[in-house]
Amino acid sequence: MGIQEQYRSEAAALLSSGEVKLVIGFGEGSTADRRRPLFARTPEEAQKFVLDAACIANLSTYLVTEGLLSDGKKVAVFLKPDGIRSVNILISEAQLKPDQVVILGYAIDKAEITALEGRNISDFSLGEEIRSHTPPPHILQEAERIEEMNPAERFEFWKAHFSKCIKCYACRQVCPMCYCRRCIVDVNQPQWVSTSSHTLGNFEWNIVRAFHLAGRCAACGACDRACPVNIPLRLVNYRMGKEVIDAFDYCAGENSSQKPVLASFKQDDPETFIL
């Protein structure tokens, strides 16, 4: 039995036993290479689940949907390691109760897809894997190329990209970590971040979002894929992730009990830049 069939029947069993009220997985998309989030409430609907190498979205973003888990019932969700990492972060930030999430884990290696052992978040120990995980070479190369630029060139690079931003907030909406009920950009007394999508306002927005994700990003790449104007958000998020590892030896989402990096400190944190 392939993993798809295995998970279909497992999802169906979870639903028919009443253990979960909902299973969030993938279904066929509008084209052959697309998969779309699919929500199954009945065992029959669970037969529509698809699981293959095209299932790359991080479905954990739906777990923080307003009201979804407020009834205390459980939800099952198909997650890759980056999604499991997101769940860890969400739990550590008190946005999820670990026992409310049943994880149907899988990993994709090129076209190969394998099931991950475990159903509860505590069954997954990702620490080693996350730390040893290197981002795809194209991200590393791009990031390196930017690091090698001088500040003025770097500014021009981002100016060109941020000038395209239309403030559709797709990056925010698909991000599991952007769960604020009212985002800073939607707060208007005072209006800290300008809502206008001119280049200056776009710098503001993208910098603030990157900062808010520093040490919280699971590197799932959802924002980058969602961006309709192709801003390489992966780079800035990768850079922030690298910074918290280098400076604080902190890797977001290793487990669900770590303290958020910017909400904690060590007395001997590095401070070479402070006079």
């Binding site: 779309r36 989030p37 699919l38 929500f39 973003t61 739906y62 239309i166 403030k167 559709c168 907030y169 797709a170 925010r172 909406q173 698909v174 969602a226 309709p228």
Partner: peptide, 13 residues
């Protein structure tokens, strides 16, 4: 509309 995440990209494009 269950899976709609509520971004504005469809409207802006």
């Amino acid at each position: 509309s269950l899976r709609c995440v509520g971004c504005g990209s469809c409207t802006f494009l």
